[in-house]
């Protein structure tokens, strides 16, 4: 047996925990949930096959559509804002600021804390009745009360929370900016390009693979938003379903209503939606993402 072959065997042994994790914790539940999506299953008794009933039920379920609407608005509004903000900060930090390492760490912190329960509770203090924002606005005569209890404003507070967690895409943008050859900027400067032209003709085109990467990552994450909505709304998705995120609704159906069959069907629809949106992004990327070797 060759040494290389023996080393390969040892590698497989090392991989066993990962394989076990993949099979037991991911693959088996995934396949089980696909089966359960076609059943009436309340956890307490055996699943009963009910065909497409769970999927048909979604069309008549007002809460399903409310959850779709909330999640769609959140994805469409918060992701461009978050990426735009992250890019802006990355550009500023890329200009050789003193104390860059400190700023980079400081700006990254919200990304670590942003989806935690503690920050969601903090959000309640900031946007609640008589909270920081309410008090600040009252100085200007605006009495909006609790933003979190206002159906027109509650979702926007969670969008702000998501934008605030710009650190992760910002660090990736910063790494991308460092990869752009300085000669290109010098070349366009020779051609008389100003800052705006340098940005649109050099920075953006060469950064498009990074923008695309961040876009895919953050979009998938946004579709799966749960903790913030659960804590901020106390798990209800209120007021008036204005923070009823799709994953929160899946959770409610599965663990509060014991309707695990319907929850599984909802989960598979979400997975299909994320897959579809990602596929569309990949198709469209042919028209705007520049990989340098095109």
């Amino acid at each position: 047996m060759s040494k290389l072959h023996r080393q390969g065997g040892a590698a497989h042994v090392f991989l066993i925990p990962w394989w076990l994790g993949l099979v037991l914790v991911t693959a088996v539940p995934l396949i089980a949930s696909l089966y359960l999506a076609f059943t009436d299953y309340n956890i307490l008794s055996s699943p009963k096959f009910n065909g497409l009933e769970n999927f048909e039920r979604m069309f008549q379920d007002d809460y399903f559509w409310a959850a779709v609407r909330v999640t769609a608005v959140y994805v469409v509004v918060s992701i461009p804002l978050q990426l735009g903000f992250a890019l802006l900060l990355a550009l500023i930090l890329d200009r050789g600021l003193r104390g860059l390492a400190f700023y980079r760490s400081a700006f990254y912190l919200p990304s670590l804390l942003g989806t935690s329960v503690a920050v969601a509770i903090l959000w309640r203090q900031i946007f609640g009745d008589n909270g920081l924002v309410d008090r600040a606005l009252s100085i200007f005569g605006l009495e909006l009360g609790s933003w979190l209890q206002n159906p027109s404003l509650s979702l926007s507070t969670l969008i702000v929370l998501n934008v605030w967690t710009f650190g992760s895409p910002m660090v990736i943008f910063l790494a991308g900016l460092r990869q752009i050859p300085e000669e290109l900027y010098e070349a366009v400067k020779v051609d008389g390009a100003g800052i705006v032209r340098q940005f649109t003709a050099v920075t953006i085109p060469l950064l498009t693979p990074i923008i695309f990467f961040n876009l895919i990552l953050q979009t998938i994450g946004a579709f799966q938003t749960f903790t913030q909505a659960h804590v901020v709304s106390g798990g209800t998705g209120g007021p008036a379903n204005s923070t009823l995120f799709y994953t929160l609704y899946i959770y409610q159906q599965g663990f509060t209503n014991f309707d695990m069959g319907y929850a599984s069907a909802l989960a598979w629809v979400l997975m299909a939606a994320i897959g579809l949106v990602t596929a569309v992004h990949f198709v469209l990327s042919r028209y705007w993402v520049f990989y340098g070797d095109d």
Partner: peptide, 10 residues
């Protein structure tokens, strides 16, 4: 109390 004053239902 309004829902705002009592920070939601419950």
């Amino acid at each position: 109390l309004t829902l705002s004053e009592q920070e939601g239902m419950g």
